[in-house]
Measured scan of single mutants.
Amino acid sequence: MAAGGDHGSPDSYRSPLASRYASPEMCFVFSDRYKFRTWRQLWLWLAEAEQTLGLPITDEQIQEMKSNLENIDFKMAAEEEKRLRHDVMAHVHTFGHCCPKAAGIIHLGATSCYVGDNTDLIILRNALDLLLPKLARVISRLADFAKERASLPTLGFTHFQPAQLTTVGKRCCLWIQDLCMDLQNLKRVRDDLRFRGVKGTTGTQASFLQLFEGDDHKVEQLDKMVTEKAGFKRAFIITGQTYTRKVDIEVLSVLASLGASVHKICTDIRLLANLKEMEEPFEKQQIGSSAMPYKRNPMRSERCCSLARHLMTLVMDPLQTASVQWFERTLDDSANRRICLAEAFLTADTILNTLQNISEGLVVYPKVIERRIRQELPFMATENIIMAMVKAGGSRQDCHEKIRVLSQQAASVVKQEGGDNDLIERIQVDAYFSPIHSQLDHLLDPSSFTGRASQQVQRFLEEEVYPLLKPYESVMKVKAELCL
């Protein structure tokens, strides 16, 4: 049975990233139509530049190519590739079939990587351009969430054990800070992308030097003109047959890092959902379990974690691919890159769409948070109580021993009897502590235990987050809708 299948058929496997999760716009960027249309555009740009620099290419040939950029006979191309065992030459023939007058000058002087690699770089750039505003929107939604809850005390956790208090907004800023680093890295790697350009079979530009009869300047002009037509500021000066596969490492490393950030955020949300302090959106008709109707599973956060793990592992592909590119190139890269580049971007696209949807509907339960604080705060307040007693004339050592005994009794009630923490009640009825009984409410005010959390939130948002989001103001209103 021949390899390949009808990918629109229910009898043929289709990647869930495309069929179930990723956005239509990201799927289109990695589609065959987008790819092969870009090949034709690159052939047109090459012909236009070659004509401008004096090669015998007519206006009629150029116009014929322009008129057929979208006229792609995919069936013919597939048949040609089956016959020739070469995808680029299959599309040269297919393009030439609908451009008979231009057929002889299509791909003039070029090698397969002229269309293959340059198209990949265009796709990487455009895919990054799709991700950047999506990530900015996630940051914006979380920034709104953090600002609104900047002063809401909550129990902090280290080692997932109760620690000092923080605020809900401050905790959210930990998430935002990681995503801001990801946004900066995505922008950097996007701006650092260079075009492969017009380089020939081993990167020496020998074929173009021959076409222009040894004119170095025209060869350099050709490279520059096509690079500018493709919208790049610069091209690699040095290439082998391909652009260095280190570029793929750079791009997928940034995406993998984004995956790590999203995994951490969504894990926190899942843990908070278990504590009943916070939940992701839950639709009115949504079913959490087929057997347990009360369940409210954090399905979206779980999906993000599941896909983020996949995204983090994909960076190993370009690392290994770059390491086995012998001399000017081997074909070890080809099949692998067809999979890992598309999957990385479709996965990143999915987790950003999902995280935006989550961040637009996060639900906080202040009463649950308050109750958990009441359970733990008495123990945390013991040092403040000791200091207040010393100020009232008591002995630190005597007070410490009193607190120690009462704390152990209260802990026994919590752990052995399943009761509430009654340390404060014990202190309130103990005559030894009568000098500070009137101060206990103040000493137990949760806001006095959150330090500068709310001020940190305000400063972080104003100095770091809002300036970073400013270039994306025009796209901030787009909502994230999930079908599944």
Rank of each mutant, 00 (worst) to 15 (best):
P318M: 03
P378I: 04
Y365W: 15
K367D: 07
F28C: 08
L255S: 05
F433K: 03
E473A: 09
D215T: 06
M181I: 12
A146Q: 02
A453D: 03
V198Y: 08
S434M: 11
N384K: 07
S31W: 00
K187A: 13
K276W: 07
M380L: 08
I385E: 02
E464Q: 11
M316H: 12
F36H: 15
I123W: 06
Q455T: 11
R396I: 03
I122L: 15
I373E: 03
N71C: 11
K391W: 06
S12Y: 08
T201Y: 01
V219L: 12
T382C: 09
A411G: 13
D11C: 12
A22F: 08
Q285A: 15
Q63E: 13
A256W: 07
R372T: 05
N421H: 05
L341V: 13
E70R: 13
G96Y: 03
C113H: 00
D120E: 14
L44E: 04
Q177M: 13
Q61F: 06
G4I: 15
L174P: 05
E79C: 14
R20Y: 00
E60N: 12
L55W: 07
S112N: 03
F236C: 05
L307K: 08
T94K: 06
A335N: 04
R141M: 15
V29Q: 11
D248L: 06
Y13H: 07
G259R: 03
I237L: 10
C266Y: 05
E250Q: 07
F195G: 06
T166W: 03
V92D: 01
T244S: 12
G197F: 00
L179N: 02
L44W: 04
K134S: 13
V115F: 01
R396F: 03
K276T: 05
Q221F: 13
L183V: 13
C483D: 14
R374K: 12
L69I: 14
S140A: 13
G169Y: 04
E81A: 00
Q456I: 08
D332W: 06
S112R: 01
G214N: 11
T58N: 11
A388W: 02
D32S: 14
L461R: 04
P10C: 14
K134E: 13
T382D: 00
F282S: 13
S334Y: 04
V189W: 07
A102E: 03
S67R: 12
L183S: 09
E213H: 15
Q51W: 03
L209F: 12
A453C: 11
K276G: 07
T167I: 02
F30A: 02
S434Y: 08
C27V: 15
C98K: 12
Q184W: 09
R404I: 06
P162I: 07
D73M: 04
D73P: 11
L346A: 11
S395R: 05
D6Q: 02
T450K: 07
H97I: 14
R296T: 13
V324W: 11
E401R: 11
K391P: 01
A388T: 06
R404D: 02
T52C: 12
E401M: 13
Y243D: 01
E425H: 13
Y365F: 10
V189I: 13
F160R: 02
L355C: 10
K276N: 04
M76T: 10
M316N: 10
Q41D: 12
A411W: 06
T354D: 05
R40F: 00
V219I: 13
D223T: 03
C483V: 14
A260S: 15
R33F: 09
I351F: 07
K402C: 00
N185E: 05
E462Y: 12
T227A: 14
Q164R: 00
E302V: 05
I287M: 06
Q63F: 13
I123L: 13
L128G: 07
A410H: 07
R149E: 12
Y432S: 10
S359D: 14
I72S: 07
Q210D: 10
D248I: 04
F379E: 03
P446T: 04
D11W: 15
V247K: 09
L275C: 06
L272C: 07
K246T: 02
D182C: 00
N357A: 11
R329E: 03
R149G: 08
F208C: 08
R452N: 10
S19L: 06
L211V: 15
D216M: 10
K402T: 10
Q205F: 00
Q428L: 12
L46N: 07
F208H: 06
T38Y: 10
V251F: 09
Q241H: 00
H93E: 11
L406P: 01
E473D: 14
I57R: 01
F74N: 12
K35W: 01
V414Y: 03
F327Y: 10
T154V: 08
E481H: 14
L84Q: 14
D178A: 03
L346K: 06
E464M: 05
R20A: 00
A392K: 14
S359P: 12
N185C: 12
A322G: 09
F157H: 09
M225S: 10
N71Q: 12
T347W: 03
R234Y: 10
R303C: 03
I269V: 10
I176R: 02
L44S: 08
A78L: 09
K264A: 07
D216E: 09
K218T: 06
V198D: 00
L461M: 15
S454A: 12
L186F: 12
I369G: 06
D117R: 01
A77K: 05
L346D: 00
M316P: 04
M89A: 06
I358V: 09
V405C: 13
S31V: 03
L179M: 15
Y21A: 00
Q458T: 13
R452Q: 08
Q184N: 09
F232Q: 03
S395P: 02
N421R: 07
L222C: 09
E383L: 02
N353Q: 12
R309V: 11
L341C: 15
C180F: 02
N71D: 12
L319D: 04
Q397K: 05
S301M: 11
I339E: 05
S306M: 05
V29E: 00
A322K: 06
R459Y: 13
D73I: 05
G393P: 02
M292I: 05
